[in-house]
Amino acid sequence: MTTTNPNSSASPLDEHGSERTGHVETRGIDLVPADERGGRPRRLFAVWAAPNVSYLSFVVGATLILMDLTLPQALGVILAGNLLWICTGVIAASGPAMAVAVTDLVLRGNRYNGRDLLEQRRGCPFWYHGGVHRAGFLAIVVGGLTSALWVNTSFWVGPIAKALDDIDMAIPSGMIAAAAVYWAMTRALRSIPRD
Rank of each mutant, 00 (worst) to 15 (best):
L75Y: 10
A92V: 03
G61D: 09
W127R: 05
T4P: 01
A50C: 08
A49L: 12
L79N: 11
T26W: 03
T88R: 08
D116Q: 13
V60S: 12
G17R: 09
F45A: 12
C87Y: 13
E15D: 15
A184T: 11
V106D: 05
H16I: 01
H129A: 11
T153I: 05
I140N: 10
N82H: 05
P6Y: 09
R111P: 00
A74T: 09
I65R: 12
L13E: 08
S18L: 14
R42Y: 03
G109M: 02
F155P: 00
R115C: 04
S18R: 15
R43D: 14
L117Y: 14
A179D: 02
H133V: 05
G131C: 09
E19R: 14
D195A: 15
E15M: 07
D195S: 13
R122M: 07
P72Q: 09
Y112N: 05
M98Y: 07
G22N: 05
G76R: 11
G123M: 09
N110E: 10
A34K: 14
Q120D: 14
P72E: 10
S94W: 06
T103H: 00
I91V: 14
T26G: 13
M98A: 12
S147V: 00
V181N: 06
I29C: 05
L71A: 11
A97N: 13
E119R: 12
M169E: 02
